[in-house]
Every structure is written in structure tokens, then in C-alpha cells.
């Protein structure tokens, strides 16, 4: 099984490119591209693991969402606002767009639209576009059922300390951020 990781880094930092991993590839590997606007990186499962691992030492919230998922989009403004103190104190928030779960969605069609989509909603944290069609391996790796939206609270030690499946409100995001800050 061939796997791909494409990085479309725009805001500066880019991750090391890795080849190999799990799941089905969605398209042939292409050279990294840049898109003006918010940073959006395209990652497969290994790329996502590398992204998360690179943030070890800091509390982290990872929000899995999709543009076609109403509750996911609805909760984004609250995620942004509720986690500002957390981020100001050194915590990180990352969005992982799982649009490709749904048939008809491809990297080449989703990626160009994401920066404007994110900008319009005031998203000021890192976002990744998951390049694999299947999310079972993703759920296996991180220990959740691919039920959108999902938010993981990860402590500085790297342990996932809480999983919230379904839409969250500002208070819930703040609580998840606090759980991540406290760690296990």
C-alpha cells in the first residue's frame, strides 16, 4: 500500500516529509504547493502522527472536522474564542479536516477552498487536511471512533487525556483545554 504526504505550508514552518503509512492514498504524490492565506498542511496518518509528536511538551487540542459537517463548522468560532487563553499560555490547537471521508471530496478540490473558509471564520490556529479516504486507521491510532466532530485533549506528556465526540460549546472547549493543560 502506497501512502502519501503532501505538505502545503504557507505560514512558514513545514514538517518533515515522510512516506509510508496507513490507509488508502487519495491521489498521486505531488510536489509541495503553496496557497496564499491560512496555513493548511496535507497529511496522511504518518504525517499527522509526526505533527502531533512534534508538539510533545506542550498541551494540545486536536479538533477533527469537515466542511460538510454542520456541527463541526458551527463549533469553530467557539473553539477559536474559548481557547485563546489556553493558546496564550503556551497551549496549541490544531484542526484536522476530514473532508475526504465523504465520496466526492478530493484534496485537489478541497485544499484550494480551505484557506478562505478558515479565514472567514477567524481560524487562527494550524489546520491540516487529512489526505486519506479511510479514517478507521486514524481512529485506531488515536483511540476514537471517526464521529465528526471529535476533539482530543492531549497533555504535554503526549497522552490523550480526554476525547469529546460530537459538538462542543465554549465551556466544553475550555474544559478540554484545561484537561490538556493538567495532563494525565
Amino acid at each position: 500500500m502506497v501512502s502519501s504526504l503532501r505538505t502545503v505550508a504557507t505560514a512558514g514552518a513545514s514538517l518533515a516529509l515522510l512516506l509510508g503509512g496507513c490507509g488508502e492514498p487519495n491521489a498521486p504524490v505531488s510536489a509541495p504547493r503553496s496557497i496564499a492565506g491560512a496555513a493548511v498542511e496535507v497529511v496522511d496518518l504518518q504525517g499527522l502522527e509526526a505533527f502531533v509528536h512534534a508538539r510533545k511538551g506542550r498541551p494540545l487540542l486536536v479538533n477533527f472536522w469537515a466542511t460538510w459537517c454542520g456541527p463541526c463548522v458551527a463549533e469553530l468560532p467557539e473553539l477559536v474564542a474559548a481557547t485563546r487563553p489556553f493558546r496564550a499560555a503556551g497551549g496549541e490547537v490544531a484542526g484536522v479536516c476530514l473532508d475526504l471521508m465523504a465520496p466526492g471530496y478530493e484534496v485537489d478540490t478541497v485544499l484550494p477552498k480551505l484557506p478562505a473558509f478558515l479565514a472567514a471564520r477567524g481560524i487562527d490556529y494550524a489546520n491540516l487536511l487529512f489526505s486519506e479516504y479511510e479514517c478507521g486507521p486514524l481512529g485506531d491510532r488515536f483511540g476514537f471512533d471517526p464521529v465528526l466532530p471529535v476533539t482530543l485533549a492531549i497533555g504535554a506528556s503526549g497522552e490523550i487525556v480526554e476525547i469529546h465526540e460530537g459538538r462542543a460549546d465554549a465551556a466544553r472547549f475550555a474544559a478540554l483545554a484545561e484537561r490538556a493543560r493538567q495532563g494525565s
Binding site: G136, D145, L152, I163, G166, R172
Partner: peptide
Amino acid sequence: ETRPEGCSIKRPAGEARRPRRGGR
């Protein structure tokens, strides 16, 4: 059983649970 995939059922309020496994 297999791991279900899809859109979340739109309950009135979400539920949190402890992780089964995972980490970084």
C-alpha cells in the same frame, strides 16, 4: 464489531468519554 464511521448523531448535547488508547 467494527469501528463505525460517519457523521455524529445529532443529540441535543455531546458526550465526552475517556480514551481507550492512543497518545503521541
